[in-house]
Amino acid sequence: MIVDDDHLVRLALADILDTDPGITVVAQAGDGAEAVEVARSRQVDVALLDVRMPRMDGITATRHLRALPRPPQVVVLTTFDLDQYVYDALAAGASGFLLKDTEPEEIVKALRVVAEGQAMLHPSAARRLIDRYHRTARTLTAAERSRADRLTPRERDVLALLADGASNAEIATTLGMRESTVKAHVSRILSALEVGNRVQAALFARDAGIAH
């Protein structure tokens, strides 16, 4: 589902995505409120949302979409790569972000990656976002410390690399694992930390002092 208050942007994005036979644009929406209503009535695997929209912005819409019984993965769009609203959207449950001037093939790649359950954050962009708006690690609650203690040393190694923006393949190479093993570790980490996606796990890692 493509969500943007600019009709021409929606059309352009739809044209880009229609070039890939593995992607079907099932719906479009002009703001976050409409997007949530659409997602309640039909199956949406990935929602591509603008951050700034009337009625309901992308941050609020992300939170509502991720709370649905069948939540779509969310990728947010922004004009600025260091937009605080993007950080807020990631914290709300988005799995990544794209700039509006991203090359068409990269947009397609991002949606495919996110649909598979991974985050689409360029490593340097991930670090800038997290560092700029999350510099001072907050104190973990007792419950959060307990969740962090559930992780094995190997899972902590995986989480530290994940927090640096590394992909599963990059983590596998660095730690000498199979990629399937990394996927299993990531799944276990998300479950242990009780977070919804890799980005939220990365933020948790920063707070817990696990990130590099």
Results as ranks from 00 to 15, higher is better:
residue 181 T to V: 10
residue 189 I to H: 00
residue 170 E to A: 11
residue 73 Q to R: 15
residue 79 T to P: 01
residue 182 V to R: 02
residue 130 I to E: 06
residue 63 R to A: 15
residue 68 L to Q: 05
residue 101 D to G: 08
residue 161 L to M: 04
residue 209 G to K: 01
residue 156 R to T: 13
residue 60 T to G: 04
residue 11 L to Q: 15
residue 51 V to E: 10
residue 56 M to S: 08
residue 100 K to N: 08
residue 176 G to S: 01
residue 146 S to R: 15
residue 200 Q to D: 06
residue 30 G to Q: 11
residue 117 G to K: 09
residue 145 R to A: 15
residue 97 F to P: 05
residue 17 L to H: 07
residue 36 V to L: 11
residue 143 A to D: 15
residue 93 G to C: 07
residue 139 T to S: 03
residue 119 A to E: 09
residue 36 V to H: 07
residue 25 V to Y: 07
residue 74 V to M: 14
residue 207 D to H: 03
residue 87 Y to S: 03
residue 138 R to H: 08
residue 72 P to E: 09
residue 76 V to H: 01
residue 69 P to M: 03
residue 82 L to Y: 00
residue 39 A to L: 05
residue 61 A to M: 12
residue 132 R to T: 15
residue 174 T to D: 00
residue 198 R to I: 06
residue 4 D to F: 13
residue 2 I to Y: 12
residue 43 Q to P: 09
residue 21 P to Y: 01
residue 49 L to S: 09
residue 142 A to W: 12
residue 198 R to D: 01
residue 131 D to A: 03
residue 54 P to S: 04
residue 128 R to E: 06
residue 168 N to V: 02
residue 99 L to G: 04
residue 151 L to C: 03
residue 84 Q to C: 00
residue 160 A to T: 11
residue 104 P to H: 00
residue 42 R to Y: 00
residue 71 P to D: 07
residue 187 S to N: 13
residue 17 L to N: 02
residue 187 S to A: 13
residue 208 A to Y: 06
residue 153 P to W: 01
residue 124 S to M: 07
residue 150 R to A: 12
residue 111 L to T: 03
residue 188 R to E: 05
residue 142 A to R: 15
residue 61 A to V: 09
residue 5 D to H: 04
residue 48 L to H: 14
residue 185 H to V: 05
residue 127 R to V: 02
residue 126 A to C: 10
residue 147 R to G: 08
residue 23 I to L: 14
residue 51 V to F: 11
residue 116 E to R: 13
residue 15 D to R: 14
residue 166 A to G: 03
residue 123 P to K: 00
residue 81 D to W: 05
residue 67 A to D: 13
residue 85 Y to P: 11
residue 210 I to K: 00
residue 29 A to S: 04
residue 204 F to I: 12
residue 114 V to K: 04
residue 91 A to I: 10
residue 113 V to W: 00
residue 193 L to Y: 06
residue 193 L to T: 09
residue 109 K to A: 01
residue 196 G to H: 12
residue 7 H to W: 13
residue 111 L to V: 09
residue 157 D to E: 15
residue 54 P to F: 07
residue 95 S to E: 14
residue 14 A to F: 09
residue 175 L to G: 03
residue 47 A to G: 13
residue 56 M to V: 08
residue 187 S to D: 14
residue 45 D to W: 04
residue 210 I to H: 07
residue 14 A to V: 12
residue 116 E to A: 15
residue 18 D to S: 14
residue 175 L to A: 05
residue 9 V to A: 15
residue 10 R to H: 04
residue 40 R to G: 04
residue 58 G to W: 09
residue 165 G to N: 02
residue 87 Y to A: 11
residue 140 L to E: 10
residue 120 M to R: 11
